[in-house]
Design a protein around this nucleic acid. Structure first.
Lengths: 187, 187
DNA sequence: CCAATAGTGGGACGAATGTTCAGGTATCTT
DNA sequence: AAGATACCTGAACATTCGTCCCACTATTGG
């Protein structure tokens, strides 16, 4: 079961991912501020020393979590755009608005966690490549005839999510749709 | 010098603002994570107990700082838009791009601090009115003939700032200008 | 089969944290 | 002027933090 010499699927790999997933749950619940070796260990149901063994410092743990998180973000947003493009010109906005409303509704905790890690990357340069990953993936994958319009689109999505996070009641799909539509096809 | 019975300019008001300003400096330097009663006290050059006296809990301190910060943000962004509007249709983008580049360059620390407090408001409902303040101020002050276009504009500004924070070298004014221009006058 | 090594876990250390308390000082009210 | 009130501060509390150490087990390579 172990990949030797090249792969990274060593023995302790399962524990590592357990710890990372527990870290993400802690961030969703209590924010980055709530991440300590002990809280993560308790969340994962493992002794405290196990977290310090696999991640020497707390920063290492946050870095690994962000990288893991960024991969999920990139693929998810990629499929979002892909689905939006596969639909008609008018239906694209509908699809994106639905996923945005989801990110601000049921998956609100996850969205908050992602942006907290995002902002952490602003302070720690070694995190930036991981944080930029999903932007880079989209930029390279999605066909964008207009460079400027595409940047505006990405910035708009980010802004809508962040502003939606501080709403008392998150904007619903129907409220988001016209805005997303304008973002895709400005008049 | 003291407003009695109604006003709030009591004696200890100076200390309060000193503490809040010190808190903002700490956040700019080390982030919200670096805010403790002791670090703030040291930054302000006052004993630790003075911070706990004026702000019983750490949350109170962060709330007060965010409210103070939000007021500055609102007025600054208001003048930004005002200056942009006073110029010609084409010069408006130039003005806004300059201020954005400034926020991502020399005032980068301040911008980071603002967004960290912003995200803190997503987790603490009592902070949201303060965090929304500058959005509300703009929405009420700035004439917006197109509601949807205005929301997209605000979201776009937020997105550009956040994405600029995780760039290794912040985008310059000339790089921002076409994007802001598109945001104001989409084609 | 048997050393060598990676992984696991209990316990404890010093340092830093939020918070409290009692005693002091300045300022205001009357 | 004198009492009341708000303000200030040094010292200390229990708690929690990151981290280290040492013993134990399972897995691996030869």
């Amino acid at each position: 079961m172990k990949r030797q010499a090249d792969g990274r699927k060593a023995r302790g790999e399962k524990r590592r991912t357990e710890i990372i997933e527990a870290t993400l749950r802690v961030i969703e619940r209590d924010g980055v501020a709530g991440v300590t070796h002990r809280t993560v260990a308790t969340e994962a149901g493992i002794p405290t020393t196990s977290t310090t063994y696999h991640f020497a410092t707390l920063d290492d743990l946050l870095v690994a979590t962000l990288i893991d998180c960024a991969r999920d973000m990139a693929t998810e947003v990629y499929w979002m755009i892909d689905r939006a493009r596969s639909h008609g010109r008018g239906r694209g906005a509908e699809e994106i608005a639905k996923l945005l409303a989801e990110a601000l509704g049921p998956k609100r905790g996850r969205t908050m966690a992602e942006y907290e890690l995002y902002l952490l990357a602003a302070r720690k340069p070694e995190l930036r490549p991981a944080a930029r990953r999903w932007l880079d993936v989209l930029t390279s994958m999605v066909r964008h005839d207009d460079e400027v319009a595409f940047r505006v689109f990405l910035a708009g999505i980010d802004g809508l999510l962040i502003q939606g996070l501080i709403d008392d009641e998150p904007p619903g799909e129907e409220e988001l749709r016209p805005v997303v539509d304008y973002l895709l096809n400005p008049r």
